Computed example of a mutant assay.
Amino acid sequence: MRGADIKRAYEAIVIGASAGGLTAIMTVIKELSETFPLPILVAKHIAAADGGGAAKVLNKVTPMPVFEAMDKQPINPGSVYLAPANYHMLTENKALVCLNCDERVCHARPSIDVLFRSAASVFGDRLIAIILTGANHDGAEGVRAVKRLGGLTIAQSPASAESVVMPNAAIATGSVDRVLPLDEISAFINELTTN
């Protein structure tokens, strides 16, 4: 994908991260435009005892509202939804997130693959998927699903990742459109989502 091929009316962003992921997510969202137009749905491997702490931390670095997602919560533009500990987060349609306690995927719940696959089925080629630092292969199958349905896929460059396993696994699928250093991802997203 190049130039005009990737410029389109995107409707949502999904982000997946694990080890070192909170810092990486902060780096991405704090540099997004103050009028950022898209909802951002995040699956980060998170400790069961988190108690909403990750959402509170993210709320401090961005003017966008950050929510620990609730079942059947409306999806609003310019908002960030973080999968809560021990729940998979999915997009039921373009308007709602839903949560479930299905089996773990890649030993994880929330699972990046689960979020990415569900969002790909709902948003198709209007979806941007971003894989950040992490220590397992969760997200690789999700990236394949997003790419297969026409979405744009981005991986953090392994050289800029605290843990290289997750970005490497995504890149190895051959389904990643862009590999970017962490500090360049938000500028790229801003450019794609401004008219």
Rank of each mutant, 00 (worst) to 15 (best):
C106W: 14
E141P: 09
C98I: 15
L132P: 09
K94V: 05
G142D: 12
Y87S: 02
T91W: 07
V122G: 01
V114D: 14
K94T: 13
M89I: 13
A120Y: 12
E141N: 12
V114C: 11
M89D: 14
S118T: 14
A95W: 03
A120L: 09
P110R: 11
P77V: 06
G124D: 13
L99A: 08
V114K: 05
C101L: 13
V114M: 12
H88I: 15
P74S: 02
R109T: 12
S118G: 10
T133F: 15
N100W: 09
M89P: 09
C101R: 13
L115D: 05
E92N: 03
T133W: 11
Y81Q: 07
G78R: 05
D125P: 00
I131F: 03
D125E: 15
E141L: 11
E103C: 04
N86V: 03
H137P: 00
S121M: 14
G139K: 01
H88Q: 04
L90S: 10
L99K: 03
L115K: 01
P84D: 06
H137V: 13
I112M: 02
G124P: 00
N93A: 10
L90Y: 08
H137S: 13
G78P: 14
A140I: 10
P77A: 06
P110G: 13
D102A: 03
T91F: 05
R117V: 12
I130L: 13
A108H: 15
Y81H: 05
V97K: 08
A119F: 03
A85Q: 02
P77Q: 02
L82R: 06
A119D: 03
N136C: 06
S79K: 07
P77L: 01
V80D: 08
P84R: 01
E103L: 11
H88M: 10
K94F: 03
N93W: 02
A108G: 11
F116P: 01
S118Y: 13
R104W: 01
E92C: 00
N100Y: 09
N76H: 11
A135Y: 02
I128H: 05
G139T: 11
R109P: 15
A119P: 13
K94C: 05
K94W: 05
G142R: 05
R109I: 11
I75L: 12
P74C: 00
A108K: 07
A135Q: 01
A135T: 07
R117I: 15
N100I: 08
T91C: 15
C101G: 02
Y87K: 04
C98S: 13
